[in-house]
Amino acid sequence: MTATDPLQIDGAGIRFKNIEKRYGGLFALRHVSLDVAEGECVALAGRNGSGKTTLLRIAAKLVRPSSGEMQFTWQGDQDCATPRTGFVAHATMVYDELTAEENLLLFARLQRLSDPAPMTERLLSEVGLSERRGSLVRTFSRGMRQRVAIARALLQQPQILLLDEPATGLDPEGVAWLAGTLRKLRDAGCTLLMSLHGESPISALATRAVRLDAGSIVADTQQGAEMHGILEFVGG
């Protein structure tokens, strides 16, 4: 992802087939069917509680749908059961009691990356935390933690990147940096599925916008003006 690295990623597609998710009697998702093509950048919009996070967690295989099916479609290494997937969630998903470097090394080892140290070093440099690599994450600001979280999600050069309001805690400079990073990933072929609130430099990357309301898809478009309308909607 540096200027000298010509990044090429075999993106993967996601197919949600009639997905339903219930928590007790409460429907988080109702009959959601959505095909996200390889290399597509889809923005999910909608009010709080509309089902965006649930859909992303189902895509990450962290939540099992009550009914329906989610599948990945991709070319390339079909020996793997699932494509490489990165997830940036609401919570940072990193350990406060470890340093930024220890966090990345831990997750790199768990993902069995062949040479974790250089990858960790490179990502820390890219997220602007090289100088704080040895500091405990609990001493970081929210924006810095979010940068560690993004670095963690990028460790295995994901074919699919799932982002749940990824700009949370980032200052305008951080948002611009994230938008630049996501643009490079999108252009390299990585599939992006992200939930957003309102328009931002990140929403400008979307090639398609989907709006959820009360767990159902109410709008899905690739048209510029309509997309603008969906992404402009912030909801309550």
Binding site: R57, A60, K61, L62, T85, F87, A89, H90, A91, T92, M93, V94, Y95, D96, F107, L110, Q111, R112, R152
Partner: peptide, 14 residues
């Protein structure tokens, strides 16, 4: 659960 690190672990381990 503090930072939802269990989800990160579940995503990372085979």
């Amino acid at each position: 659960q503090t930072n939802d690190t269990l989800s990160a672990l579940r995503l990372s381990v085979s």
